[in-house]
């Protein structure tokens, strides 16, 4: 008994230790980015190993906030990025969930073709589609508008989301749905009350993926938008790269700022995934 308890305790310590190692590996480069944002220039362009900004400087951070980027406040770019990313995630999640249910729950003509088509879309190098897709969206009348970016990002993230969600929908025991039908629930109620809660963790994972992909998307954000005030953060970031020198401090400060909203988004949605909501839903 005592022996078992010690072993259990030891196991817990080992697990937490492993967790800390993973955390450090993941965070160290991020720390370096943040630290650089606080380093004065002569500490960035040094040839000595220099892990801690000493003394730390707010030069880069305050410059990014007070001077803005390319004539607009940094908030403007963050806002544009947030609009595009959030709308993309919401639309993308709905579309993907519907399509995933179709391919996981029904057998119909072109089902396999549809799945493979989605994969092919992922395989093609982005550069090869850039100009055609750009022309396409322009013809739809969405040039120089954030909605155009939303449409493109939905298109770019949908294949992944459908493939991913498909496995989650398929894993939900069919019997649960049938039970619900027998109880007289409509298709929609069944979907909403039975399927949705069980697929929620998968939905969270794909939403995070879509959010980050959209948040960092650069090529279309650059080409499709012309109005300086509608650029997103990745484009703003490029303004720190000059013809003849690059403002690394500024880039790192802006990159740090850019990372924060993703973490906020994650904290907002992660509860659905980490908590043990699933078990309850099955019983209910």
């Amino acid at each position: 008994m005592n022996d078992g308890l010690t072993r259990k305790k030891f196991g817990r310590v080992a697990l937490n230790g492993a967790g800390i190692v993973v955390f450090l590996f993941a965070v160290f480069p991020v720390y370096w980015m943040v630290a650089t944002a606080f380093k004065p220039n002569d500490q960035i362009f040094t040839t000595r190993f220099n892990p801690i900004p000493s003394p730390p400087s707010l030069d880069h951070i305050s410059r990014v906030f007070t001077k803005g980027v390319a004539g607009h406040s940094i908030w403007q770019y963050l806002l544009n990025s947030a609009i595009v990313a959030v709308v993309t995630v919401v639309i993308g999640a709905v579309f993907a969930l519907l399509a995933a249910t179709a391919v996981a729950r029904f057998r119909f003509r072109f089902r396999t073709s549809f799945l493979i088509l989605l994969l092919i879309v992922q395989m093609v190098p982005a550069e090869a589609l850039l100009i055609s897709l750009f022309t396409m969206v322009k013809r739809l009348g969405m040039y120089d508008q954030l909605i155009g970016l939303v449409v493109i990002n939905v298109g770019l993230t949908l294949p992944f989301s459908v493939w991913m969600l498909r496995t989650f929908v398929a894993a939900v025991p069919k019997e649960l749905e049938e039970a619900s039908w027998i109880d007289g629930a409509s298709r929609f109620t069944t979907f909403w009350r039975v399927l949705f809660p069980l697929v929620a963790p998968g939905l969270v994972a794909t939403s995070i993926f879509s959010f980050i992909t959209t948040w960092n998307e650069f090529a279309y954000a650059l080409t499709l938008i012309n109005d300086q005030g509608k650029y997103t953060m990745p484009v703003a970031l490029q303004f720190f790269v000059g013809q003849r020198s690059t403002d690394w401090g500024g880039i790192m400060a802006a990159s740090t700022l850019m990372t924060i909203p993703v973490l906020i988004f994650f904290l907002l949605v992660q509860r659905r995934m980490v908590s043990g909501l699933v078990a309850g839903a099955v019983k209910g």
Partner: peptide
């Protein structure tokens, strides 16, 4: 922590 790594531009 790992999200921060993923989220880095």
């Amino acid at each position: 922590g790992i999200m921060a790594a993923w989220a880095t531009p």
